[in-house]
Design a protein around this nucleic acid. Structure first.
Lengths: 248, 248
DNA sequence: TTGGCGGTTTGATCTGTATCAAGGCTCGGT
DNA sequence: ACCGAGCCTTGATACAGATCAAACCGCCAA
């Protein structure tokens, strides 16, 4: 295996699901070798379902490239997105054999899967893994709580602004650090997916995106290509006080 | 220290924050002795604030008795509860030195605190702790996601029914197992706190509670004492399909 | 006994978002 | 070049829940 940098992101680390420096510094070690032996890749096309809620799930996985969503659906069809998985994010729960959510690829997707049983055994033997997983899970929990504030208390306009800010910042951090100018990205979600994320209808999403455009908070080229001329302005619209918090 | 049962709850285990059988079976061991040395108790009166968001937090803790809430507040005062801590629940995040949320005692409260630095060191040495914490955090994440569905997609009536069902079930599981009859409990939250939990106003909470009473789904004695004659009926009103999921 | 206060209920009205409906844009296939 | 499907926008209207306002209840203290 290739030598790895210390403070790496998943793509550079290839297939190590545990991208923490302490573990990656050991990439040559036994424990990573054991991870190698239980892993396999799966690819999905945009729109494909990775797994349905309630299905038997005999693996855990991390996203290598692409974006996946976790959604919950009520009997009458109301849907709520409860997680957005970007590269290096982890899915699956050690110690549970059924999926709790629908997992769907919203773009073309590659996942690095690990068979669950041996993964759990490995976790029992190598404390780093549980510690790293704990750290990641706590990050996700923080993100979920931020999301709860959004769902419970923000207006439609604030919700849209929040989502755009989240995507813009995640996107920027995956690219170059601290480029001061405008942020530019392609929306990875349809209007309907945005609605499912935000607890709105797709019509309301469309209206509010148009409103933000009309008011000069964002610029649009086509439906998906977004330009954020001023992130501070956008964050103000989002109603976020703390700019430190980074969400999923 | 006293001998502990295996499948115990926190109260019986006294001060062990890690109530998992594997750890508790070792209550006589060195590692628990070390926990003993870094722990202390704090008591709070109903309504007191344990810690404000942004404050320095040099401990982690678990609830011994009473109920605490985690809330987030926006600049203009909009509030959203993002966590409800019942006995044996854990607060605080290893590897972070500031509180991310306001923590408030809604009833008289006793917490068992552990100084963070030594707790982290101990966690590094004893894998059980990280594993148990991971398990608990994953449970909380599941609860948070269920909560997101509630906030994003449920009607006011469904929200109230969901909250009552959550409290009734948690309460029942703390008392006797599988008592088939009516469930009876005292609401530990004011109408306003319920509203902050559910992303509603207190007036709407009041109206919907009255409506559920009028429709015979619940019975009330005074403002707080609730009787659930038929849990299945209540869960139907809550719009929950899966009855297996247990929330915070 | 009175007054005041926190928590709660209830009523009247307003408003933001959902719902229903129609039409537009874009891209790929025939 | 045309068609159709998917996705998106826009308009008209309906409604759930917010907001504003008043009054109630139980309880404690003076």
């Amino acid at each position: 295996m290739a030598q790895h940098d210390l403070n790496i992101v998943h793509q550079q680390c290839g297939d190590c699901p545990i991208r923490h420096r302490a573990v990656c510094a050991r990439c040559e070690s036994d424990e990573l070798q054991q991870l190698e032996e239980i892993k396999y890749y799966r690819s999905f096309q945009a729109g494909q379902t990775v797994i349905w809620s309630g299905d038997r799930m005999d693996f855990v996985a991390s996203v290598v490239t692409g974006i996946a969503t976790l959604t919950q659906t009520m009997e009458d069809g109301r849907r709520q997105m409860v997680g957005l998985l970007l590269p290096s994010d982890f899915v699956g729960r050690p110690g549970r054999d059924k999926a709790a959510y629908d997992v769907t690829a919203t773009t073309d997707l590659v996942m690095c899967c690990f068979r669950k049983k041996p993964f759990e055994e490995l976790m029992g033997k190598t404390p780093h893994i549980a510690q790293r997983l704990l750290e990641m899970t706590l990050d996700e929990l923080d993100a979920a709580r931020e999301w709860m504030l959004l769902l419970g208390r923000k207006t439609a306009r604030e919700k849209i602004a929040s989502l755009l800010a989240i995507i813009a910042r995640r996107d920027a951090s995956l690219k170059l650090k601290s480029q001061k100018g405008a942020l530019i990205f392609d929306l990875p979600l349809t209007r309907e997916e945005m609605a499912d994320y935000l607890g709105l209808t797709l019509e309301t999403v469309s209206r509010q995106v148009s409103a933000l455009k009309r008011d000069g908070v964002i610029e649009l080229q086509g439906k998906r290509h977004v330009i954020i001329p001023n992130l501070d302005r956008l964050m103000e619209e989002a109603g976020d006080d703390s700019d430190g918090g980074f969400l999923i």
